[in-house]
Amino acid sequence: MSQDEILIRASEPEDVPDLTEVLNQPRAVWGTMQLPFTSVATRRERFKVTSASQTMLVAVIDGKVIGSLGLGRLEGRRGHVGTFGMAVHDAYAGRGAGTALMAAAVEQADRWLGIRRLELTVWTDNIRAIALYERFGFEREGLMRDYAWRDGAYADAIAMARLRP
């Protein structure tokens, strides 16, 4: 799929049903800290309390939201730091939506928010995501053993970060 066929835009309240579908996909939820089987009603409530300091992006193909990325800025002495999480619908994985979302988030962080450091946490076995982040200049900073409970077992994660060039 061509990057030209993927629209990246701000998330809107009417996107919540599609976002819920994305985040309830087995592989998509596996790669996040989200819980499976979250209802549309629960996600609508979460959407209402999204902070003004967060940038919520969606990837759209043929009018359907197939991916999302939330970019937030920390406060106080870590106000130069942004963090994010993302997910792509299982049926659209590997077609460029993650790359398009990352490109938009990095541009937003670098050119509009003045974020110096972008950081993330990724499961050690999420090879595709790690490769994507490395293409955008993220470097591995450390291993976090038994970071969180996932799919019936504790899973390790990698701390990664990118400093604005």
Score class of each variant (00 low, 15 high):
123 W>P: 02
157 A>D: 05
148 A>C: 11
148 A>L: 15
132 L>P: 07
160 M>P: 03
101 L>P: 08
149 W>L: 13
156 D>E: 11
131 A>S: 14
155 A>E: 14
147 Y>S: 15
108 Q>D: 14
152 G>D: 11
113 L>S: 02
105 A>W: 00
97 A>L: 04
151 D>E: 14
113 L>E: 04
145 R>T: 14
112 W>A: 06
114 G>V: 06
154 Y>T: 09
127 I>C: 02
119 E>M: 13
96 G>K: 10
119 E>V: 00
107 E>Q: 15
137 G>F: 03
128 R>T: 08
96 G>N: 00
99 T>C: 12
141 E>T: 03
109 A>I: 10
132 L>S: 06
129 A>R: 04
113 L>G: 12
115 I>V: 12
151 D>Q: 14
120 L>G: 00
101 L>F: 07
108 Q>P: 01
111 R>P: 00
160 M>G: 06
143 L>T: 10
103 A>T: 11
157 A>Q: 03
96 G>E: 03
100 A>P: 00
108 Q>N: 04
123 W>V: 12
123 W>H: 11
107 E>V: 09
112 W>P: 03
120 L>P: 06
132 L>I: 10
129 A>C: 00
126 N>Y: 02
110 D>Q: 09
141 E>N: 10
131 A>T: 07
126 N>M: 10
137 G>V: 03
106 V>G: 04
133 Y>A: 07
153 A>Y: 07
101 L>S: 09
161 A>Y: 09
95 R>Y: 10
161 A>P: 14
131 A>W: 01
137 G>T: 05
153 A>D: 08
117 R>Y: 10
105 A>R: 08
110 D>G: 07
117 R>V: 11
117 R>H: 09
118 L>Q: 01
138 F>R: 05
98 G>Y: 08
123 W>S: 04
158 I>S: 11
113 L>C: 09
129 A>S: 08
100 A>I: 05
97 A>P: 05
108 Q>Y: 05
122 V>S: 00
103 A>L: 12
118 L>A: 01
134 E>Q: 13
162 R>Y: 06
104 A>V: 02
112 W>G: 02
101 L>N: 05
153 A>F: 08
158 I>T: 10
94 G>H: 11
156 D>T: 13
104 A>C: 01
96 G>R: 05
123 W>L: 15
161 A>V: 02
156 D>S: 09
162 R>I: 06
131 A>C: 09
109 A>V: 04
138 F>I: 03
141 E>I: 04
151 D>M: 06
138 F>M: 04
120 L>F: 07
128 R>F: 00
150 R>Y: 10
155 A>M: 12
107 E>I: 01
161 A>S: 15
113 L>V: 06
135 R>L: 15
102 M>V: 00
157 A>C: 09
94 G>W: 05
141 E>P: 04
106 V>I: 07
